[in-house]
Amino acid sequence: MDKMTLNRMEFFAYHGVYAEENKLGQHYYVDLELLLPLSRAGFGDELTETINYAELYARVRTIVVERTFRLIEALAEHIAQDLLGFYPELQEVLVRVTKPHPPFEIHFAGVSVEIRRSRPVEVYVGLGSNLGERHELLAEAIRLLSEHPRIKLLRQSRLYETEPVGFVEQGKFLNQAAAFATDLPPEELLVELQRVENRLGRVRDKRWGPRTVDLDLLLYGQVELRLPRLTVPHPRLAERAFVLVPLAEIATDDAVPGLSSLSARIEAMPARNEVVPWTR
Rank of each mutant, 00 (worst) to 15 (best):
M1S: 14
L6W: 02
N7V: 02
M9I: 07
M9A: 11
H15V: 09
G16L: 04
E20H: 13
E21A: 07
K23V: 10
L24D: 08
L24W: 01
G25L: 10
D31L: 09
D31K: 04
L35F: 13
L35C: 14
L38W: 01
S39M: 12
G42R: 10
F43V: 13
F43D: 15
F43Y: 13
G44N: 13
D45Q: 11
T50C: 11
A54G: 14
Y57R: 10
R59L: 15
V60R: 07
R61T: 06
I63R: 07
V64Q: 03
V65M: 05
V65T: 13
R67Y: 08
F69R: 04
R70G: 04
E73V: 07
A80C: 12
Q81K: 12
Q81R: 14
Q81M: 13
Y87A: 06
E92G: 03
V93Y: 06
V93W: 05
L94E: 15
R96K: 15
P100E: 10
P102E: 10
P103C: 05
F104I: 15
E105A: 15
G110M: 10
G110W: 12
R117C: 03
R119A: 06
E122V: 14
V125M: 05
L127K: 04
E133F: 03
R134I: 00
E136H: 12
L137G: 03
S146F: 03
H148R: 06
R150Q: 13
I151P: 01
I151S: 06
L153H: 05
L154K: 14
S157K: 02
E161C: 02
T162L: 02
E163W: 02
V165A: 09
F167I: 02
K172A: 11
F173E: 10
N175E: 09
N175V: 02
A178P: 10
T182A: 06
P186K: 09
E187C: 05
E187G: 01
L189Q: 02
L193E: 04
Q194N: 12
Q194S: 00
Q194P: 00
V196C: 10
V196T: 11
E197A: 02
R199K: 13
G201L: 00
V203D: 01
K206R: 15
G209D: 02
D214K: 06
D216A: 04
L218F: 05
L219T: 06
Y220F: 15
Q222V: 01
L227W: 03
R229E: 15
L230H: 04
T231K: 05
T231Y: 00
P233M: 08
P233L: 09
R236G: 07
A238F: 03
E239T: 08
E239V: 08
L244W: 09
A248I: 04
E249V: 03
A251Y: 04
A251C: 13
T252N: 09
T252Y: 00
V256R: 03
L262A: 10
P270R: 11
A271P: 01
W278D: 05
R280I: 01
